[in-house]
Design a protein around this nucleic acid. Structure first.
Lengths: 342, 342
DNA sequence: CTGAAAGCGCTTACAG
DNA sequence: CTGAAAGCGCTTACAG
């Protein structure tokens, strides 16, 4: 591989001139620039990223910081990744993906070793130790998710309270009187995992104002997680005719349990979820859902982080709390006249 | 952040001694090592990855080279990523994910810019220009997938011919006489995309030996892709009672089309897929499938590439053609006595 | 408008 | 067993 020194020799100029032609950071005369450019072409030169990173103290790399990935291999996580990659690429940044059983240690590693310029933190808790660490170290970051206290922090998140409110409104309008919210239990995240706690609160608070009663269920985010809960519900609480899944991963099991109990969706049982457009469409049957703009959140997260890297710590933070729309796709319907068969 | 020079000063030794304590590449006296180690602890030092990368000419980073990701955001791709990440992490490597509308250009970029030590190529074609490029440039790589000619190349792939054979055996044993294979059309990949062409060939060749007749269908890898094909089949070719999906993403649409035509799965129509255990289990209903060991393929791919990076180009290549097992989960059954209602 | 040189933070021959 | 020094391939003040 040709180095910048090779190009300089080839063009008969100094190494720094080659560098400045590439960066545009000082004006170069027409003829000199020509010679350099054709030398670059002739040697098939491309600047070495390692040399650039060391000299400029910028690697143009960001890290997407997943906690343990294995628990949630769903399409929605891939959508976050996809959005992040798209935006990073548009800005000339590379993206590393980091996954660990020990997210805190992994965060520290990213901040200390300096292979990347900043990190995008996923699956944020209300008081996330990773965030405290990054702040203490003054290492650039942005959140996909948000904490309880977000002063000065760049973040993008779904407005879970709003989403749950839309679900309750919808079910109430359809005449359901008793509803359930299923929250996936994420092994590595504590009880203060943002989406779970915010949905839980909104659900609890939102029941009364709509004249509903309901119950919260926590289950493994697996195929059988939703199945077991809904089996129990159909067996013991037939009046609960409307169900909300905080994650689309629970839904296949929920549908199966409904079917096993002889219930038709949506005639006997209404099921809705928080799910990206894509995931809701691909499901079988397509799901009535509040749209979870996962790709856009990945995009905005990368956007914020890169802006922070380029503008420095001074500029004021960007905070996006996105509201999803309700899209009807047929898994919810009017509450059954009388409770379905036991 | 403390540098190695800080540590050296703190310990009263030379910078090189600190480096050697860390690398273990020469013997250090007990007392000296002690002083260095406690200086490292006192300064909270961690070696700077950029300096290491430049000096050692190794970044301990590999790139996972996806073609355009947007077409296939499925769980199975996430499983490849997950396997790669797990293994990379065990070896102290970082993983970059790269996605592009122009995979060739992206490959060239990775090889020229030198931000990574090697690349893992996904979605390989029978004669993949990216592979030719990497070979010409002598840039380390391994394939998840394989070409027609694989001399000297490290790769891991599913044995698609074997998998399709298992499917045909299974359907033939169940008494099906006429079967279909659905291949997802991947926009960015040409007709010579490995999995499609190998499955196609095995299917065509395998029909006769089992006394079957059948047909091939190519459809968009979307929710509606499988739907449209199966709608047509049920309308025009009711004797086709066994269907194989080369990708699980087609299945939800296929099931929906079956249902819309008033057909029961598996009583009237048998559907099976090539799908990872996880994806097949999570589907609703769970799918009879030939297991696609996506996580393991990600692991093996990373393993091979890292071995190549550590051992150099001399050692002979590793080539894994994995065979998946058939797992029955209830979407296939005996062929109906007479063709189902039209 | 351009060049010579210092320096980014390491690794690793070269010396002793 | 340890140190002084060259060098990895760039960027960017410092000079002119």
């Amino acid at each position: 591989m040709a180095t910048m020194a090779d190009v300089a020799r080839h063009a008969g100029v100094s190494l720094s001139t080659v560098s400045y032609v590439l960066s545009g950071k000082r004006s170069i005369s027409g003829p000199t620039r020509e010679r350099v450019l054709s030398a670059i072409a002739a040697t098939n030169f491309a600047p070495n990223a390692r040399g650039q990173a060391l000299a400029s103290r910028r690697s143009r790399t960001i890290v997407l910081l997943f906690p343990a990935l294995a628990h949630d291999l769903g399409t929605m996580n891939m959508e976050f990744v996809d959005g992040t990659l798209q935006t990073a690429r548009e800005h000339g940044y590379s993206v590393m993906i980091s996954v660990s059983d020990d997210p805190y240690e992994e965060t520290e590693r990213a901040a200390r070793r300096g292979f990347a310029d900043g990190v995008l933190v996923m699956e944020v808790e209300l008081e996330d130790p990773r965030v405290a660490l990054l702040q203490a170290r003054d290492f650039p970051f942005a959140l996909i998710g948000h904490q309880r206290d977000n002063a000065g922090i760049d973040f993008v998140d779904l407005d879970f309270a709003h989403a749950i409110g839309l679900c309750l409104d919808h079910l109430a309008e359809l005449g359901h009187r008793r509803v359930g919210l299923l929250l996936p239990l994420i092994p590595t995240r504590s009880a203060s995992y943002g989406p779970s706690s915010r949905s839980r609160e909104a659900f609890t608070a939102g029941l009364a104002t709509r004249g509903l009663t309901g119950e919260l269920f926590i289950c493994p985010a697996t195929a059988t997680g939703g199945y077991d809960i809904v089996s129990r519900i159909t067996a013991t609480d037939p009046g609960m005719t409307g169900l909300i899944a905080n994650s689309p991963q629970l839904v296949p099991g929920m549908l199966r349990a409904g079917r096993a109990a002889g219930l038709d969706v949506p005639d006997d049982l209404s099921i809705m979820a928080l799910a990206s457009h894509r995931v809701a469409e691909a499901a079988s049957p397509p799901l009535t859902a509040v749209d979870f703009p996962a790709v856009e959140m990945g995009r905005l997260g990368a956007e914020m982080l890169i802006a922070r890297l380029e503008d420095g710590p001074a500029s004021r933070p960007t905070q996006h709390l996105l509201r999803g729309d309700l899209t009807l796709r047929g898994t919810t319907g009017p509450a059954p006249r009388r409770p379905p068969p036991p």
